[in-house]
Amino acid sequence: MAPAQGSSTSGPTRSKLSLKGSSKLVSEFFEYSINSILFQRGIYPPEDFQVVKKYGLNMLVSVDEDVKSYIRRIMAQLNKWMGGSKISKLVVAIVSQDTAEVVERWQFDIEVFGRTASSKKSAGSPANKENSAPVGAKGRAVDAPTDKTIDEIQQEIQAIIRQITASVTFLPVLEGRHSFNVLVYADGDAQVPAEWIDSDPKEVQNAEQVKLRSFSTASHRVDTMVAYRLGTVE
């Protein structure tokens, strides 16, 4: 836990711009990821997507006006939260329209360096933390953020996008019509507009999970994971 304290104390000294820039980069990554998922998982017809050069890849971005504005509304709020480091997870849940079941769940864990300790007020005594340290993802936040060039970050992002693209090879084919929901895990003190409501985590029942790659910037670390239902196992 000692390194965690180190990084958290050095966190505030980091320039505000780097956190801002990093948030922007992360949000942008979310936007492209969501679009990629929608395309790769066939939520919308492929004709609705257009190739855009990004991260040195050909990214597919929806050109359907409704979808575009829907994603734009999500991203607008996400940007605000990201700027204030108010969210810790972003989830894209793919829901069957026939059974309303969650069949697939893409989860992006957002770790803000230097925030984990400082923002967690009165979470318990230090002794208490000792217990929690090995549990969960918080332990990883301690990795001292290394200084990376934009190119290196881009390459990490590129690897994730490639994995999302490649995931169609192991993900089950989605039968029938599907829709998607976007969830965030927000801090309790985050400002929540009326468009966002409390929700259950939309877990996939009987899920198989695959962890994808991560990327990190000077201020953020994003882990990617996909959970999907094993079609045959009931």
């Binding site: 939520i43 919308y44 017809p45 609705d48 359907d64 409704d66 979808v67 829907y70 509304r73 999500i74 709020q77 810790s88 967690k120 019509r177 829709s179 998607f180 929901n181 976007v182 969830l183 965030v184 895990y185 927000a186 801090d187 309790g188 003190d189 985050a190 929540v192 009326a194 468009e195 966002w196 409501i197 409390d198 929700s199 259950d200 985590p201 939309k202």
Partner: peptide
């Protein structure tokens, strides 16, 4: 001290 929030509006239908 965390809330799970969902974006309420329905995603547009394909």
């Amino acid at each position: 001290n965390q809330r799970i929030l969902a974006f309420k509006p329905e995603a547009p239908q394909s």
